[in-house]
């Protein structure tokens, strides 16, 4: 296990503050553009990275950590969804069926289409990219 030094902690904190800062920028911008604040923040940071031309190591580390534990943030909304599921009553099954069959068909369609486009030309994209 790699040792975590003091500067790592400071850098990670700064990287996280950067994320919060970009979210606030997005929030400010969302008063003028009717798009989600987080999305605007995301696009601003993306443009920032394009200008910078690389991803700073601490930012990469912090973002990987956050995205790996994204599930945590979905627990409260899922608990809350139960509250609405109860309200739907008898219609709940119709509602769930809508999600089920639309997921099935769209997954079928995308994998079929993807296989048709990419299935027989394994050379065109040869980079194995795990970054």
């Amino acid at each position: 296990m790699p040792r975590i030094s003091k500067s790592d902690v400071v850098n990670s904190t700064l990287a996280f503050i950067t994320l919060i800062l970009f979210w606030f920028l997005g929030f400010w911008l969302s008063h003028y553009i009717a798009l989600p604040a987080a999305l605007l923040g995301l696009l601003l940071l993306f443009m920032g990275l394009l200008c910078l031309g690389r991803v700073p190591k601490p930012l990469e580390y912090v973002s990987q950590f956050c995205l790996r534990h994204l599930s945590l943030f979905f627990i409260p909304p899922l608990v809350a969804a139960w509250f609405y599921a109860e309200q739907l009553g008898n219609n709940l099954w119709l509602f769930l069926f809508a999600i089920m069959f639309s997921t099935f068909i769209s997954l079928y369609l995308t994998s079929w289409l993807g296989q048709r486009f990419f299935g027989h030309s394994n050379q065109s994209v040869s980079q194995d990219d795990e970054s």
């Binding site: 970009f22 979210w23 999305l39 923040g41 940071l45 993306f46 945590l72 943030f73 990219d129």
Partner: peptide
Amino acid sequence: INWMLGPVTVALAIPLYQQIRLIYA
């Protein structure tokens, strides 16, 4: 916990940037 979701979403910019070559490809 919900407040933290915003900044975490912003973090998606990093994989998007890292996969940009893939988008071209």
